[in-house]
Design a protein around this nucleic acid. Structure first.
Length: 551
RNA sequence: AGCGAGGUAGGGUAGUCUGGAGUGCCCGCCGGGCUCAUAACCCGGAGACCGGUGGUUCAAAUCCACCCCUCGCUACCA
């Protein structure tokens, strides 16, 4: 139940190299958005912060290859992502980006504090250096022959042929992955690192106090990592693209992308509004963070570690919720391997509401979940259409035929214990981050409605042209109850399928949905131009989809 | 190899923390009902040695040990 505490909801920042696929979406931004919409529905004072993660090697290298400035490349992808998230009805309070003045300010502030407080040290490493390109090469961008299987073209991090993890020094006859010359030498270089080992006791205390409300995978993985002991982690890199390090001797380096990406939550909020402080510097605020399971250690240890070390009064994460993966035919969705469906293509198949609903219905909250078109179509046709859409439509049609007016309807929710129970379950499930279960509760309300119709047989007392004489009282309470459930569905559907929700609520004159409204009498009823709120996939579309799945 | 997550009817899941008759849900299947509705809806039924083996217990899907299988992470990707 809502209290007066503020809430910051974040999704892991999507990397702006390419358009995310639906696996990325369902694993972070979608649940964050759905949860944020729930907090609005429940009446919390919450903000939803996200943005594009723009720094890092892949973008710099790609920009180099395409002959454009990294910033231009990152910004163009950022604009496309912003647009596509908008099309998916994501309701960010603010969607920013990491390459911004405000984020630079936040990064410098936190770095400065960490240094002042004695948590930064320099570490020496030896890295391959290309004398032609005049730059250090990260593991991915040095290539050569695999020392194990002899494969030509193995990368410094891994051999694609035998799958072994490698280090650049192991490669036989290494060459630069950019210019393909062999004029490479291994040179010493210095980088800055955050001393997580020093922060370990504080991080451990933080984790112990909070992990009760984390997802199982996040909690267990963190315990396991902490048991092994944290080590200093580098926060600077040998690159041009990023924020220059403001420290003598390191000016030619930039901050490592993970460092300014997590700080981005703050930096982006700063750009949003002066009100950012009311949330970030308020010890009561709950910071709720959604992400894929690959992001766990950054959020449970490194990010809290740097906040604790900086000691600037920023709130620490309250809830960390990490999602498993959506897979396609058992394979992890992957841009590089061409597995899965990107968000732009997805909209050619179905509108945002359908994707949001179906993806949350399949949400990989507890384990990897296999996505198939057949399953997707099933959810749309059977669940959204046959259960929910059809229920809403049959009730509204009955109501229209009955010619009853809104003030005739008796809609005493107190007489509907099952509906109240489902509504409570919906709220409890959201509060416990069991979002998929909350969605099941919503579906169960439609099930309840369909069952009520069968039991009460309203067609026996409502004709095509009004209520049959002598049945007025009965019709008023019967239809009142049925429409009450439609009202509930419209309201509780809002986090999942906002467009359909709006379509329903508009008929009841509700502009801004809220759970507290569910106890009020329905005040308006507009039954003009009734049509089903969802439509099914036709046989024709199905065949098209099957072809799509083949490729 | 280490670590994390899973293995429950034909398929997909919940239940496992906090042991108590295999209990629930979705799809599919079989039978019946209904006609307000999107050929939709409702009711009933069949279908599971709860991955395996051993142990603890009056009692194990649930706790313990070992084993088998799947996925993921162990990246100078974020």
């Amino acid at each position: 139940m809502p209290d007066n505490k503020k809430m910051i909801i974040t999704s892991a920042l999507p990397y702006s190299e390419a358009i995310p696929h639906i696996g990325n979406f369902v694993g972070s931004i979608l649940p964050a958005d759905v949860f944020y919409r729930y907090t609005e529905l429940a009446g919390y004072d919450s903000i939803f912060i996200c943005g594009s993660d723009q720094h890092g090697t892949p973008i710099e290298i790609r920009a180099l290859k395409e002959g454009v400035a990294p910033e231009r490349l990152a910004d163009s992808v950022h604009e496309r992502m912003k647009e596509i998230f908008g099309k998916f009805e994501c309701r960010f309070t603010y969607y920013g980006k990491t390459h911004s003045e405000s984020n630079k300010k936040a990064v410098y502030e936190i770095f400065g504090a960490l240094e002042r407080n004695g948590y930064i040290k320099s570490v020496e490493s030896v890295m391959p250096y290309c004398n032609i390109d005049k730059r250090f090469l990260t593991d991915r961008y040095i290539e050569g022959k695999c020392p194990y299987c002899g494969f030509e073209g193995a990368r410094g991090d891994q051999c694609d042929n035998c799958g072994r993890l490698l280090t650049p020094g192991e490669l036989v006859d290494p060459y630069c992955g950019l210019c393909h010359n062999k004029d490479i030498e291994f040179k010493k270089t210095m980088n800055l690192a955050i001393e997580l080992d020093k922060l370990q006791p504080d991080i451990l205390e933080f984790v112990k106090g909070r992990m009760g409300s984390w997802s199982k995978n996040a909690a267990n993985k963190t315990i396991s990592y902490l048991g092994q002991g944290l080590e200093a982690r580098e926060i600077t890199r040998e690159m041009k693209w990023g924020f220059p390090v403001p420290k003598e001797g390191f000016e030619d380096k930039v901050f490592y992308v993970w460092f300014d990406a997590v700080i981005g939550y703050i930096g982006i909020s700063m750009e949003w509004s002066d009100k950012w402080k009311d949330y970030w510097k308020n010890p009561e605020t709950r910071l709720i963070q959604f992400m894929g399971k690959d992001n766990i250690e950054f959020h449970t240890m490194m990010w809290p570690g740097l906040l604790i070390g900086a000691n600037l009064g920023y709130v620490l994460p309250h809830t960390i919720y990490a999602y498993e993966y959506l897979t396609a035919k058992g394979l992890k969705f992957s841009k590089s391997r061409g597995v899965g469906l990107n968000m732009e293509n997805a909209l050619e198949i179905a509108d945002a509401d359908y994707w949001r609903f179906a993806l949350m219905y399949l949400s990989p909250e507890n384990s990897d979940t296999d996505f198939t078109i057949a399953l997707f179509v099933d959810i749309i046709n059977k669940v959204m259409n046959d259960k929910i859409g059809n229920y809403v439509h049959r009730v509204l049609t009955l109501l229209k035929n009955s010619k009853l007016r809104v003030e005739d309807l008796k809609t005493d929710i107190g007489q509907m214990p099952k509906a109240i129970k489902l509504r409570e379950s919906y709220v409890n499930n959201f509060e416990g981050f069991r979002i998929r279960e909350a969605l099941r509760d919503l579906v169960a309300i439609a099930d309840l409605g369909n069952e009520m119709i069968s039991n009460k047989k309203p067609w026996e007392i409502v004709g095509k042209d009004g209520v049959l004489p002598g049945n007025e009282e009965n019709a008023r309470s019967m239809l009142g109850s049925l429409v009450r459930l439609v009202y509930h569905i419209g309201m509780l559907m809002w986090p999942f399928a906002p467009e359909a929700s709006k379509k329903i609520l508009r008929r009841f004159g509700v502009e801004k949905p809220g759970i507290s409204l569910l106890d009020n009498e329905i005040e308006a009823l507009d039954l003009e131009g009734l049509e089903p709120i969802f439509t099914k996939f036709s046989e024709k579309q199905l065949k098209k989809l099957e072809k799509f799945e083949e490729s």
